[in-house]
């Protein structure tokens, strides 16, 4: 017997989307604050390594919120998503961005790391996260 997903209600989807959007805005924006710091913009009075520590908890909580809400959104119509190459691209970019954030990015902010390398990593991080958002937006514009 097929059981209707309760998340397929009139209100669940938009509400979940609000959590998804606020979650990724805070997570990606906070990571971007560190990236811009590495590039020499914004919070220049803070040390990048300290800034990563200070925003680490926000990123973790908001990213988890965005992903959890995202999984629930996905569950409302999996076919619509996993058959869509844009969605697959989004997930690939997101996994790469998360791995980058918790490995290379972590080391690039340390005081000993080279400035130029920090800038390269910052650009890569910004491009990857921007791709995640852009692909997310385009999922609904590209019918499959």
């Amino acid at each position: 017997m097929l059981i209707e997903n309760p998340l397929n209600s009139e209100y669940a989807f938009p509400i979940l989307e609000c959590f998804h959007i606020v979650g990724f805005a805070v997570a990606i924006g906070s990571i971007a604050l560190v990236d811009f710091r590495l590039l020499g913009f914004g919070l220049r009075r803070q040390d990048p390594a300290e800034l990563v520590k200070d925003t680490g908890m926000w990123v973790l909580i908001s990213l988890s919120t965005a992903i959890f809400a995202g999984l629930m959104l996905y569950s409302t119509d999996p076919d619509k998503y996993y058959l869509n190459p844009i969605f697959v691209g989004k997930i690939v970019c997101m996994v790469l961005a998360i791995v980058l954030n918790y490995t290379v990015h972590r080391k690039a902010v340390l005081p000993g790391a080279s400035r130029a390398w920090g800038k390269v990593v910052a650009c890569l991080s910004l491009v990857l996260w921007a791709s995640v958002i852009a692909a997310g937006m385009f999922i609904s514009f590209v019918a499959v």
């Binding site: 959007i21 606020v22 990724f24 805005a25 805070v26 990606i28 924006g29 906070s30 971007a32 604050l33 811009f36 914004g42 919070l43 925003t55 926000w58 921007a130 958002i133 852009a134 937006m137 385009f138 514009f141």
Partner: peptide, 24 residues
């Protein structure tokens, strides 16, 4: 339309985090 909407959301993300940092 999708490109502009995407840019709108991208900028919201960076702008939002600055607001969030200040407010916190």
């Amino acid at each position: 339309f999708p490109v502009i909407l995407t840019l709108h959301v991208l900028f919201i993300s960076v702008f939002g985090a600055m607001i969030f940092a200040t407010d916190l």
